[in-house]
Write a protein that binds this DNA or RNA. Structure first.
Lengths: 224, 224
DNA sequence: TAGATTGTTAATCGATTAACAATC
DNA sequence: TAGATTGTTAATCGATTAACAATC
């Protein structure tokens, strides 16, 4: 199992399997087949088998996979049982929302402090996490060996903030700003591109509506 | 230009180009080449040309593309200048954060009301948007012809909430719950999978760290 | 004109799906 | 045993990258 050889789409599907399996466990179900997972999550059954295979978990012909074993395998594979400390920068609405997500800790990330440039925010506590002034970031990040930086600042200051993070030893950045960060090779950047998501939604909806209109009044419109 | 033939990766990159181009415009730059866009955003230049081509915008050999024209073309293609009304359900931390995003309106989505099951939330106004009781959703959504539903409820109630939305004529759902929705064919679902993103981040970071360790002490570890 | 840049057609690459052998 | 389900190897599909012709 060469770590680098795992396709990124597989990595993205694993958390989806994980949450599905946790729900099965809550219902008391002990075994599950790849075919059933695939049907419920809209993934081809062969794909499900390949995805689960990367975690090292094996099923038994005729009976399927143990739900519990799969959950543990995925947790291990994603390193979700080793919690890494994270600093969040930008305690605005989105930052606050992320501070409130207790579930992240089960996904390997613990936000231990938040930072904001706005003096009015500094000193507050949100969900038990203190908001500190930006000036303290550098020193604290170095001393606490912070590995993950969460970037929820405005786009205009995202690049410089990311550079500051990397300068303090941050190895991975979870970026919520709508900007492509230009950082040294080796730094891991994971973008949450809300506007990309909205673009897909908006485009699909407009195509969908045009198709409905065309059906309703099938006059030949100016050909595209 | 057959609408359905546009690859989804292209759709996802277009908003990224868009924000990049808007920044260029703010700086007063009028022309840009595909090669430069590609270099700045980490996309192959041929890919950039193909992506921009779907919007119908054309460049001129030797001079490149007009920044302004590209911006307008992308807006048109993504239907970002036709604003669609949306209802948000689940005015928790994340829902509140989304209500605060003024930028969504420029991306074709206007949140006109929010709903929450918690009576303590109902009646409040967040970012100028009223929080209404769940009971009002059905009637209002039908009367206002709401096209987009934003789902920021807990996973346990996401499926039933989505079904309610679809029952009121909602055609597209922006889903933030970590669950795969099972909805009638034709309903557009766009998932923002925060945990998938965290999975990728966590895995890459753990692989990265193991690689660093292996380099530091190149003892042969138990082979994988 | 020369050459930079565009846009398109062909080749490559990687992920998904299909076919099939293995096994409880 | 028979057959359901696994896991793997081969085929397909689609996106990316390379090559190249067109043009301002």
């Amino acid at each position: 199992m060469r770590a680098e050889s795992v396709p990124e789409p597989t990595l993205r599907r694993l958390p989806s399997y994980y949450h599905y399996l946790v729900r099965l466990r809550e219902k008391g179900q002990e075994m599950i087949s790849a075919a059933q997972i695939g049907e419920d999550l809209g993934v081809h059954h062969t794909q499900v088998r390949k995805d689960l295979a990367v975690t090292g978990s094996q099923g038994k012909p005729k009976v399927g996979h143990r739900v519990e074993e799969l959950i543990v395998s995925i947790e291990n594979f994603l390193n979700w049982n080793n919690v890494t400390d994270a600093f969040l920068v930008g305690a605005g609405h989105l930052g606050t929302a992320l501070l409130g997500y207790a579930g992240f800790e089960r996904a390997g990330v613990k936000i231990v402090a938040a930072f904001d440039a706005n003096p009015k925010m500094v000193g507050k506590k949100i969900q038990g996490v203190s908001i500190l002034p930006m000036e303290k970031f550098t020193d604290l990040a170095r001393r606490m060996h912070i590995g993950i930086g969460i970037l929820t600042v405005p786009a205009e200051v995202a690049q410089e903030t990311a550079e500051m993070m990397v300068g303090c030893g941050v190895q991975a950045i979870w970026n919520f700003a709508p900007i492509v960060l230009d950082l040294p090779q080796g730094v891991i950047v994971e973008n949450v591109a809300l506007y990309s998501s909205l673009g897909v939604l908006s485009r699909k909806l407009s195509v969908h509506r045009k198709a409905l209109l065309a059906k309703a009044s099938p006059e030949p419109v100016a050909s595209e």
